[in-house]
């Protein structure tokens, strides 16, 4: 039970932190914000690494491998494309 409460605790605080952080991002950076935060949500990759690498049935490994490929596209593509965009924002 304490474990569940602790997870909910972290979740709630993160939500408030997220709202605080994002409200400071100027509209001109909203697209990089989406692609960058999108790359961060690819964090699920660490779950897929474990499933793809642990001892398990072919079904489990298959699910893990599929998850890993999709998450890696998400992470690598997300960070790279964000970098490409942010490189273009210049001052006068």
């Amino acid at each position: 039970m304490t474990e569940i409460l602790f997870a909910v605790f972290i979740f709630t605080l993160s939500a408030f932190l997220g709202f605080e952080l994002i409200s400071k991002v100027p509209p001109t950076l909203h697209t990089p914000l989406m692609s960058g935060s999108n790359a961060i949500s690819g964090i699920t990759i660490i779950g897929s690494l474990v499933v793809a690498g642990e001892e398990g049935s072919p079904l489990l490994t298959g699910l893990g491998l599929a998850a890993l490929i999709l998450a890696t596209i998400n992470v690598v593509g997300g960070f790279l494309v964000t970098d490409r965009m942010l490189r273009m924002f210049k001052r006068r």
Binding site: I10, F11, I22, L33, M34, I43
Partner: peptide, 28 residues
């Protein structure tokens, strides 16, 4: 979705990151 997976795995990194992104998308 990432945050929910964080609850499944009891992984705080997933919960924190997923929730940050969830909040971000919600504000947008």
């Amino acid at each position: 979705a990432a945050a929910a997976t964080g609850f499944v795995l009891n992984n705080y990194l997933l919960i924190i990151s997923g929730t940050l992104v969830g909040a971000s998308g919600l504000i947008l």
